[in-house]
Design a protein around this nucleic acid. Structure first.
Lengths: 111, 111
DNA sequence: TTTATTCATTGTAATATTGCAATGTAATAA
DNA sequence: TTATTACATTGCAATATTACAATGAATAAA
């Protein structure tokens, strides 16, 4: 049906999935990597950097902002974007814990 | 157009996005968490556990298998699934590096 | 052989995503 | 005021995803 049955899953599972979904497009990964490097940027920088249309970049920025990865503040005519440090740390931990729950020691029990 | 312009991005960006995309559905997160806990499982276990139809679970398992998160071996009538330890470690590192490239020290330069 | 079990595949409907042109909005410059 | 700049929003077309019923394939039990 193209719709996810979120009510079947835990809050944590939905949170991880929501985050991952946002990271699930190379343009958004590229935007975040660019921000990590440049600290701040405006929409126009990314249009130059990525080679996608302005409207498309704007849309990706909105998705990144909606889950909290980035924040944007109006600076005169342009909007200055940067990473949200608190959310970044939160997401990093959530993913870290997800991966660390599996220990390679379990390898031997594998089918 | 509903199609991602992968040629605009680096291999790393596409790799991260591809992985994240697979984690971008709570059912697949739930399957992986169940496997981490139970070490192995079969399709039927997950149908019970998650409350989705057998065909739907099967589809999610295929996606997880395609990117390498899990592996499945035929055991008589059923198929035994488990986490692929090498891939798991690889993905864990890729995400870890992605997140660690940002240092909270950069916070002060934020807009 | 026939039947049951287990899972994969196929087909289909509903919905979501991606990308962009066109347009709207708000601030600054001329 | 009018034009320009920088983004956001809207609307659209193409494609992808989600979920499941129906069916297929392969093994084991009766």
């Amino acid at each position: 049906m193209g719709i996810t049955k979120t009510d079947l899953f835990t809050e944590e599972q939905n949170a991880i999935a929501q985050m991952a979904k946002v990271l699930g497009h190379p343009a958004r990964v590229a935007i975040l990597q660019y921000l990590v490097k440049s600290i701040t940027c405006i929409n126009g920088d990314l249009v130059q950097e990525l080679g996608l249309a302005q409207a498309t970049i704007s849309q990706h920025l909105r998705e990144l902002k909606e889950v909290g990865f980035i924040q944007g503040t109006i600076e005169g005519v342009s909007v200055c974007y940067c990473i949200n440090p608190e959310k970044w740390a939160e997401f990093s931990q959530l993913f870290g814990e997800f991966f660390e729950h599996y220990f390679v020691a379990q390898k031997s029990n594998c089918c």
